[in-house]
Design a binder for these strands. Structure first.
Lengths: 130, 130
DNA sequence: CGTTGCCTTGACGTCGGGGTCAAGGAATAC
DNA sequence: GTATTCCTTGACCCCGACGTCAAGGCAACG
């Protein structure tokens, strides 16, 4: 199959495939006329990359998975290096989620406070004995 | 005060201050020699911007806060437009945190599965009747 | 007078993941 | 022959928030 068909089957643009190739993620054979030629294993490579990208992995982080597949393993995460990436990503996600929750709380508190000040005037006052 | 002092007091670079000015966030008077001259109110502006930036707000999102301060209000969030930004940000954060938690779960599940396959072989087997 | 240090504007670089031409070659249909 | 479609490489464009020069002006010190 040529680049256009692979692109359509994988749901990406041809530009994206050439970009992956330029990053050393997608190996490419050439036909006699210079056209890129791909097989079904290349489709699996691209699908693996897209799956990880959808999870928010950077392209470089997909490299161990790609190399694992290219080494003949049944899945991209059949190799220890891929599992390490999973673990690092989990740790990153935990940190990030924690930070975002903290920010959410702080922004929420600011909103409540600012709303109260807009409605009730700047000075905090006690309802008791009003 | 000149740009160097404001930068140091606000904990940002002079480049950053000029950038804020170029975005119309930081108004600037000039001394006779062309130097930028700032007052303490400008320091408060920059601090407001930095606080929001630390929360992950984009520069454009800080504009209502900045304009609120410049209009003479006691705080950047003393104006309804600022509260709207708070509310939009909260909604964005909720969506983002939800997505990240979903990704975290999926990646975690992949890790568990892949670890099991690495240790126990590819075929899922039953311990009973071993 | 020179040096140092802060200031000015302008312009290009960075990072990631590609999008979007442009100019031309190749295969196929008619 | 020519129209169409796919393919090739190369090159510039995008976002955001600045970093990093480059070339030169201004102030103060000695």
């Amino acid at each position: 199959m040529r680049i256009g068909e692979l692109a359509e089957r994988a749901g990406v643009s041809t530009r994206t495939l050439r970009y992956y190739e330029s990053r050393g993620l997608l190996p490419t054979r050439r036909a006699g006329n210079g056209y890129r030629v791909y097989g079904d294993d290349d489709l699996r490579l691209v699908e693996q990359i897209r799956t990880l990208q959808d999870f928010g992995f950077g392209l470089e982080e997909t490299r161990p998975f790609v190399e694992c597949l290219r080494a003949g393993h049944p899945a991209g995460d059949s190799c220890p290096a891929s599992l390490d990436v999973y673990r690092r990503k989990l740790a990153e996600l935990d940190v990030l989620i924690g930070e975002l929750r903290s920010v959410r709380e702080q922004v929420g508190a600011q909103l409540v406070r600012a709303e109260a000040e807009l409605r009730g005037g700047p000075e905090p006052r006690c309802e008791l004995g009003g």
